[in-house]
Design a protein around this nucleic acid. Structure first.
Length: 351
DNA sequence: GTTCTAACA
DNA sequence: TGTTAGCA
């Protein structure tokens, strides 16, 4: 198939197709004599996906990073389709979140205007600040899409890094012990990475699903644990229908999302859980703000600037807030602090 | 008539 | 991405 025919089929301009090629999204074969591009069915499919993702608001760069490179595109079609759809869902979901936040900001403005007929300066500031933050959030999001390169070295990283991953093994084991899965139950591990936490459950013969932002991580995980059901996704867009799991675990992942997002993540977690589904969150967290300040102050004393950097680059949760949220939402909680930061929070709904 | 590259909008 | 030019 030549370019014009393809363009008509996809309802885009030939120029757009060449443009995608120029950006490295596709690499169609070219005829020897005239250098005309020829497209196969597979490339039509790929292009269709690119167009969809564009419509879903993804930038060319993001698509390039997320789409498998042409030379390694050998997987099953259904698997590919599922992957694409999940990716789209998470993008649309994040856009929905942004819109929702913009609406909230606007509402705030409207409300402000009701009482203060003069356009309050700080109100405008608030609006501008809000949309700026949204853009930053989006940028961070796409940055974090590229967790991929860490996939191979992750396990090494975990066992050797006694700072961030201190008591790693112990924490995972305890998480599994607390959840105490029963035969026949089904669990979900969010931010599963290479599946180290999920493995604790798989070993007991428990059926596990896992989601992660990085497809490389998932590949690696799939090799390690072929029994696991793996999908691309994240806290804010769990690619499952409502009420699918008996329990949900997550380790060393919650700190990747901001505090506002955590609230949304919690409701998203509840959505995919069965009515009495339990949640276990294992991650680095502070008890409260005071703890955080004290901790940072201590690090300053010791001149450990790298550690301070690390903390400020992530969003460590406050365990007290987390526990509060659970209790206010009808859960009985239990928690343990394994070391200065590493904490396990377990929540079971009240029957 | 179609496609290509390049350059500019 | 659209448009246009100059080719094959």
């Amino acid at each position: 198939m030549k370019i014009k025919e393809l363009a008509a089929k996809l309802n885009i301009s030939p120029r757009a197709i060449r443009f995608y090629e120029q950006k490295g999204l596709i690499s169609p074969h070219k005829q020897e004599h005239n250098l005309y591009r020829t497209f196969t069915e597979k490339e039509v499919w790929r292009l269709q996906t690119i167009i969809s993702l564009r419509e879903a608001g993804m930038t060319i760069e993001d698509i390039k990073a997320a789409l498998p490179q042409a030379d390694e595109e050998d997987q099953e079609d259904t698997e590919q389709l599922q992957y694409y759809l999940e990716m789209q869902r998470s993008i649309i979901f994040s856009q929905w979140l942004e819109l929702k936040q913009i609406i909230e900001t606007t509402d705030t403005m409207i409300d402000l205007l009701k009482h203060q007929p003069t356009l309050p300066l700080d109100g405008i500031f608030l609006l501008a600040e809000g949309s700026k933050r949204l853009r930053e959030t989006r940028k961070n999001w796409s940055d974090k899409w590229n967790f991929d390169h860490q996939a191979q070295t992750h396990d090494n990283n975990v066992t050797n890094n006694d700072r961030e991953y201190k008591d790693y093994e112990k924490a995972l084991q305890l998480t599994a012990d607390w959840v105490a899965p029963k035969a026949g139950e089904r669990g979900l591990d969010i931010g599963t990475g290479t599946g180290n936490l999920a493995a604790k459950f798989l070993d007991k013969g428990i059926s596990m699903a896992g989601i992660d932002q990085s497809k490389e991580m998932l590949k690696h995980c799939g090799r390690k644990h072929p029994q696991m059901e793996l999908k691309l996704g994240n806290f804010l867009a769990i690619p499952y229908l409502d009420g699918q799991f008996d329990f949900l675990v997550t380790s060393f992942a919650l700190h990747h999302i901001s505090d506002e997002q955590k609230v949304l993540a919690l409701s998203e977690m509840r959505r995919v859980l069965k009515p009495h589904g339990r949640i276990c969150i294992t991650d680095l967290m502070f008890v409260n703000e005071a703890h955080k300040e004290q901790y940072i102050a201590d690090l300053e004393q010791l001149g450990k600037n790298d550690d301070i950097q690390m903390i400020q680059n992530e969003y460590y949760a406050m365990s007290s807030l987390l526990l509060n949220w659970f209790e206010e939402n009808g859960y009985i909680t239990k928690h343990r602090q394994l070391n200065e930061l590493l904490t396990i929070v377990y929540a079971v709904p009240i029957r």
